[in-house]
Design a protein around this nucleic acid. Structure first.
Lengths: 192, 192
DNA sequence: CAGCTTGTATAAGTTGACTTAAACAACGCT
DNA sequence: AGCGTTGTTTAAGTCAACTTATACAAGCTG
């Protein structure tokens, strides 16, 4: 005999899916793809493991859905426009709207070979775009390579640190981060 | 009947151990602890899986040994001194001497809950020290928190990017990185 | 050469995580 | 009332990775 559950929270399918995606984003944001168990995700979503499989075919499928949604949200806020002054401020807004998704994308997904492609699906902050922008300012050579890798990192880590610091004063934040970014570009051009 | 191996590379135990640690450092540096299989490590070391177990009790044991050695090397070069001008240059030297170990420590180990303690065993670049240094320059508040997290990251990522760019001109590099770090500290104090 | 050490090959045991299956309960709509 | 949907519980299947065991080959050293 099977004990019947007493307080089952029912939900329209689409809404439940969103809730699971929310929980999964939080869970994966903590420890990344490999180290996060579906048990943990289910617990975070306050839902049975089996139900996960009624919504997603596999762990990889779920993860891709999470990543895709985070990307979509990011692009919706930040656009794929070039790297002008407003970009940083847009990035801050996007990060504030979906902190877990943001952290997941740029702290974990970028270093997971099987899923890096999803992140690179966005041109924003991608090395390709960055190189084009920086190549106009920095002479060819190892320091251009350095900047191409370093500038996006500096930007994104600044945003993440800003999230962790409690998101103080977005406008000021944009200016301050821009300061550091410009200083990184100046550094690539030489200090002298 | 068991086919006998033909060209067995023999080695004194201590030396073999070092070679395994070298290989393991490379392997783990690529994909971190969980995603790296002992098969992969054994292959990288050109050695049998069984031999790994003759040198290390378990995967965790091996990983700790790798981390400990990387830490020891780092501390030997960089010392646990305060954060003066020469620190960055020492960091560059350390990174150049053991690039894989450096990447492993600061790209993976720091985000692996079970092993973070090993990295924190060093005071160098640790948040504790950094806070003390920065608290003297930045007023209490969220932007101090921001800087405490961000400044070490900016420094370490600059070094890693420098490694990836082919380690151009160490002296110049130190100056350029110092520029960015100072700019980050200035940013935390306000742009105005 | 006898024995300890270093090494390989092969096989089997163990475990945890992903995955699928089956049966049952309750809500809501027609 | 009947039926599909949403959900739970419980159990079992699968598979990869870690781990241990056994047997054998070959160098080094007293």
């Amino acid at each position: 005999m099977v004990a019947g559950p007493q307080n089952v929270r029912r939900m329209p399918r689409a809404q439940r899916r969103e809730q699971i995606l929310d929980a999964a984003t939080r869970a994966f944001a903590r420890t990344g793809y490999v180290a996060t168990g579906l048990d943990g995700v289910a617990a975070e979503a306050e839902v049975t493991l089996v139900l996960l499989y009624r919504h997603f075919d596999s762990k990889a499928d779920l993860y891709r859905a999470v990543l895709d949604r985070a990307c979509a949200r990011l692009e919706a806020t930040v656009g794929s426009g070039d790297y002008d002054e407003g970009s940083i401020s847009a990035l801050l807004r996007a990060a504030a709207e979906d902190p877990d998704g943001f952290r997941l994308l740029f702290r974990h997904a970028v270093r997971e070979p099987d899923f890096r492609d999803v992140v690179n699906g966005m041109q924003a902050m991608s090395a390709e775009v960055t190189r084009r922008e920086l190549a106009a300012v920095i002479p060819e050579g190892p320091w251009l390579d350095w900047a191409v890798q370093y500038v996006p990192t500096v930007t994104l880590e600044a945003v993440i640190a800003w999230l962790d610091a409690g998101q103080p004063d977005p406008d000021q934040a944009a200016d301050r981060i821009a300061l550091v970014v410009h200083s990184a570009i100046r550094a690539a051009n030489g200090v002298d």
